[in-house]
Design a protein around this nucleic acid. Structure first.
Length: 232
DNA sequence: GCGACAG
DNA sequence: ATCTTGTCGC
C-alpha cells in the first residue's frame, strides 16, 4: 500500500476550492464518446474514512471489461485532505484516489467514480475533476440524486430518465440497474458520452445494483483501512 | 435567514 | 462516509 500526500497547493478553504473548480471545469472534454463497453479495462475507485484518526484509504480495482475479472488492484492511505462539504467532495478524496491509480501496474482505461461528474452544482463533480487531472476517461455512478430530480422511472432494468437540475438542464441520467430496485445516478466525467456511460453501467451490473467496479473498490478500501487500524 | 446536500 | 443483527422476500 502506497502513502498519499496532499499537494502543497491543495485548497484549504471552501472559497479556494470553488475557485479551483471554476478554473478547471472548462478543461473537461465532452465531445468524445469514450471506450465502448466490453473491451479493455474498466477501473473502479472508492475511498473509506477513519475520521477519528484523520485517515483516508483509497482503492483502485481494474477489471477486464469483457469478463469483469479483476486484472489489478492498488491501495493508498493518507491524511483526509478536506472536510466533507457537499459540492466539494473531490477535494476530500482526490489525492488518495490519484495515488491509488498511480500505483496500478497497468493502464486503468475508463475510470468509474463513486459520485458525480457533470451532475454537480458547478457542473464539475469528482469524476470530471479526476478526468481533468489525469486525462483519463471518467464517469460517475452515484447512489443518491443529490439536489437533482427526475421523472418517474419504469420498473424494468435498463429504464432511464433524465436527471435534471433546477433550471431543467439535463446533467445525467437515473438508471435502473435492477428491476424494481432504486436506480443509480449516472453522469459523465471526462471524455465519455452519457449514452456510453449508461451502457457501461449496465455492462457492469449483471447481478447487483452498483457496478462491479465500485463494489470491488469499496470492499478493497475498507479492507485496507481495517488492516491499517484494526477495530478496537 | 433556513434547510438540503455526492461521500 | 459511519455506527450495526436479524430478518423479510425473491
Amino acid at each position: 500500500m502506497i502513502t498519499a500526500q496532499v499537494p502543497a497547493d491543495w485548497p484549504t478553504t471552501e472559497g479556494e476550492a470553488r475557485a479551483v473548480q471554476d478554473a478547471l471545469r472548462g478543461r473537461v472534454v465532452r465531445d468524445e464518446s469514450g471506450p465502448p463497453p466490453g473491451t479493455g479495462h474498466v477501473t473502479g475507485v472508492d475511498v473509506a474514512y477513519d475520521d477519528d484518526r484523520d485517515l483516508v484509504a483509497a482503492a483502485a480495482v481494474v477489471l477486464d471489461a469483457a469478463t469483469l475479472t479483476v486484472v489489478a488492484e492498488a491501495t493508498a492511505v493518507g491524511r483526509v485532505a478536506f472536510p466533507y462539504v457537499p459540492g466539494l467532495l473531490a477535494f476530500r478524496e482526490l489525492p488518495a484516489v490519484r495515488a491509488a491509480l498511480d500505483a496500478l501496474p497497468c493502464p486503468p482505461g475508463l475510470v468509474i467514480c463513486d459520485g458525480y461528474g457533470l451532475a454537480h452544482p458547478r457542473r464539475f463533480g469528482l469524476a470530471g475533476h479526476l478526468g481533468v487531472l489525469t486525462g483519463l476517461p471518467t464517469m460517475g455512478v452515484a447512489k443518491n440524486p443529490f439536489t437533482f430530480t427526475h421523472p418517474t422511472l419504469a420498473p424494468a432494468r435498463g429504464s432511464t430518465a433524465p436527471l435534471l437540475a433546477e433550471d431543467a438542464e439535463e446533467v445525467g441520467a437515473a438508471l435502473r440497474t435492477r428491476s424494481e430496485v432504486k436506480p443509480v445516478y449516472v453522469s459523465v466525467g471526462h471524455r465519455v458520452s452519457l449514452e456510453n456511460a449508461i451502457a457501461h453501467t449496465l455492462a457492469l451490473t449483471p447481478q447487483y445494483r452498483l457496478p462491479e467496479t465500485t463494489r470491488r473498490a469499496d470492499s478493497l478500501c475498507r479492507r485496507a483501512l481495517r488492516t491499517l487500524s484494526p477495530p478496537a
